[in-house]
Simulated scan of single mutants.
Amino acid sequence: MTRLADRYWMSLIDTRTPASARMTRREWTGYGFWKRYWASLLDIPLVMARSGKEEPANDPLPVPRWRRLRAQLDPESGRFLLPLPPGRGVVTAAGAGGVVLRVEGPERLELLLYRIDGSEDDAQKPDYRLEVISPESDDLPLIVSVRYRRREDGAGQEVLIPLAQAPLGPPSSVVWLAGYDIEAPWHISQPVSAAHVSTSDSGIVRASVAAAASQATLNAWRQVADRVNERVRAVILEEMP
């Protein structure tokens, strides 16, 4: 951590090193503090902003502001329609892939859609991961449902995403969206009590647990297992790694 801090400090005072030679203060004109901070730590070159005005400096991730959108309520289904993502992502500070969409969901949920590019042979079929971040709540654990279409056959897919208290940071879960078609409409539900999973189809529950892409998501499923009936609890525990 000390080396990172030293590197950032040297870049701020324009002390040239091989890693920071490309990062000049002039190139940072028009960028907020957090964007300069992450660019320095991760050695991400920043182009000079066309406007001389400083951008708001309250965003820790270099995600373009025009991609932060809101989910819209669909009166017919009672679910929330999510905006379609663009085809390519931008590198984030997390380094987990390209963030192609950032959405404000129902009940102050925050959604981040990541595009994970595969091999060159499979470049036309990237994988996608969805991170859902929840504000702290006494009602946790909660469940949200995301419905989308698969690009291979157009079939509908539903993924249940658990949200539970975490030891550090806000409640957050990450799931794989297998075969996600970025050109087809997709929706998210209101967050509901974990007990609602007791009425879910066993196949959907099994596929949802298998779609977990982080340890925090698996830990959330364990909390959900304590609040559902025996049938669903057995499905969840059976699918746990």
Rank of each mutant, 00 (worst) to 15 (best):
M1A: 11
R3D: 01
A5H: 00
A5P: 00
R7A: 09
R7N: 10
R7M: 11
Y8I: 00
M10R: 01
T15M: 08
T17V: 01
S20W: 00
A21V: 11
R22Y: 11
M23H: 06
R26Q: 11
E27M: 15
E27I: 05
T29Q: 11
T29L: 10
Y31V: 04
G32Y: 02
F33S: 04
K35A: 08
K35M: 09
K35L: 10
W38H: 06
S40V: 00
L42W: 01
I44V: 12
V47L: 07
V47I: 14
M48L: 14
M48G: 09
K53E: 15
E54N: 12
A57H: 11
D59E: 15
D59S: 15
V63H: 04
P64Y: 04
P64F: 00
W66N: 13
R67N: 11
R67I: 15
R68M: 10
L69S: 09
L69A: 11
R70C: 10
A71G: 13
Q72F: 10
D74I: 12
D74S: 09
P75Q: 05
S77R: 09
L82W: 10
L82R: 07
P83N: 06
G87I: 06
V91N: 00
V91T: 06
V91D: 02
V91W: 01
A94H: 10
A96L: 15
G97S: 01
G98I: 00
V103K: 05
V103D: 06
G105A: 05
E107A: 13
L113N: 02
R115I: 09
R115E: 14
I116C: 09
I116K: 08
I116R: 11
D117L: 08
E120H: 07
D122G: 03
A123K: 12
Q124G: 04
D127K: 11
Y128P: 02
R129K: 15
L130R: 04
V132N: 04
I133T: 11
D139T: 14
P141R: 01
L142Q: 07
S145E: 10
S145I: 05
R147T: 15
R150F: 05
R150M: 11
E152K: 14
D153Q: 04
A155M: 11
G156L: 13
G156A: 13
G156F: 14
Q157Y: 12
Q157N: 12
Q157C: 13
V159Q: 04
L160Q: 03
I161P: 02
L163Q: 03
L163I: 03
A166E: 14
A166T: 15
P170E: 08
P170T: 05
P171T: 00
S173L: 01
S173W: 01
L177N: 02
A178T: 13
D181E: 09
A184W: 03
Q190L: 15
Q190E: 14
V192M: 06
V192R: 05
S193G: 13
S193C: 04
S193A: 15
A194I: 03
V197A: 12
V197S: 07
T199F: 15
S200V: 10
D201C: 08
G203N: 15
G203F: 14
I204V: 15
I204K: 07
R206I: 12
R206M: 14
R206N: 10
A211T: 02
A212R: 01
S214Y: 05
S214F: 09
A216K: 03
T217P: 06
T217W: 08
L218D: 07
L218S: 06
W221E: 04
A225N: 05
A225K: 03
D226I: 11
R227M: 10
V228I: 04
R233P: 06
E238I: 02
E239Y: 03
P241L: 12
